Deep mutational scan, measured.
Amino acid sequence: LRGKKKEELLKQLDDLKVELSQLRVAKVTGGAASKLSKIRVVRKSIARVLTVINQ
């Protein structure tokens, strides 16, 4: 992550946020259990990207 440019990080952040919103919709509509663990992974990925951006 640290080797990427800021523009790439921001694009990745947008993609992750879109994916997270889709997973939340799937959870509300009764999605599979595998998607519940994926939510945690995506949230941590967002946190990692934000950490690198803010450093």
Rank of each mutant, 00 (worst) to 15 (best):
L1F: 10
R2K: 15
R2Q: 06
R2N: 02
R2F: 15
G3D: 05
G3P: 05
G3I: 12
G3N: 08
K4P: 07
K4H: 06
K4Q: 03
K4L: 13
K4I: 12
K4A: 04
K5C: 13
K5D: 01
K6N: 01
K6P: 01
K6F: 12
E7S: 11
E7A: 15
E8K: 15
L9D: 05
L9P: 05
L9M: 13
L10P: 06
L10S: 06
K11S: 03
K11E: 01
Q12L: 14
Q12V: 14
Q12A: 14
L13K: 01
L13E: 04
D14T: 15
D14W: 12
D14M: 15
D14L: 13
D15A: 14
D15T: 11
L16Y: 04
L16H: 04
L16N: 02
K17R: 08
K17L: 11
K17F: 07
K17A: 05
V18R: 15
V18S: 10
V18E: 11
E19D: 03
E19Y: 15
E19T: 12
L20M: 06
L20R: 03
L20E: 06
S21W: 04
S21K: 08
S21Y: 04
Q22Y: 01
Q22R: 11
L23D: 06
L23C: 10
L23P: 06
R24F: 00
R24V: 05
A26T: 09
A26H: 06
A26C: 12
K27L: 09
K27A: 09
K27V: 04
V28G: 04
V28C: 07
V28L: 14
V28H: 03
V28E: 05
T29D: 02
T29F: 12
G30D: 05
G30W: 11
G30I: 15
G31T: 12
G31Q: 13
G31L: 14
A32C: 13
A32H: 01
A32S: 08
A33Y: 13
A33Q: 04
S34L: 09
S34M: 09
S34D: 11
S34C: 10
S34N: 11
K35W: 14
K35H: 08
K35A: 13
L36I: 03
S37V: 11
S37W: 11
K38G: 07
I39F: 09
I39T: 02
I39V: 08
I39Y: 03
R40V: 06
V41A: 09
V41L: 11
V41W: 14
V41C: 10
V42N: 01
V42G: 06
R43S: 10
R43D: 00
K44Q: 10
K44I: 00
S45C: 06
S45T: 08
S45I: 11
I46D: 00
A47L: 05
A47Q: 12
A47V: 04
A47D: 04
A47W: 07
R48M: 01
R48G: 05
R48I: 00
R48D: 01
V49T: 05
V49Q: 00
V49E: 00
L50E: 00
L50R: 02
L50M: 09
L50Y: 07
T51A: 11
V52I: 11
I53Q: 00
I53T: 01
N54L: 12
N54D: 02
N54H: 10
Q55E: 08
Q55P: 01
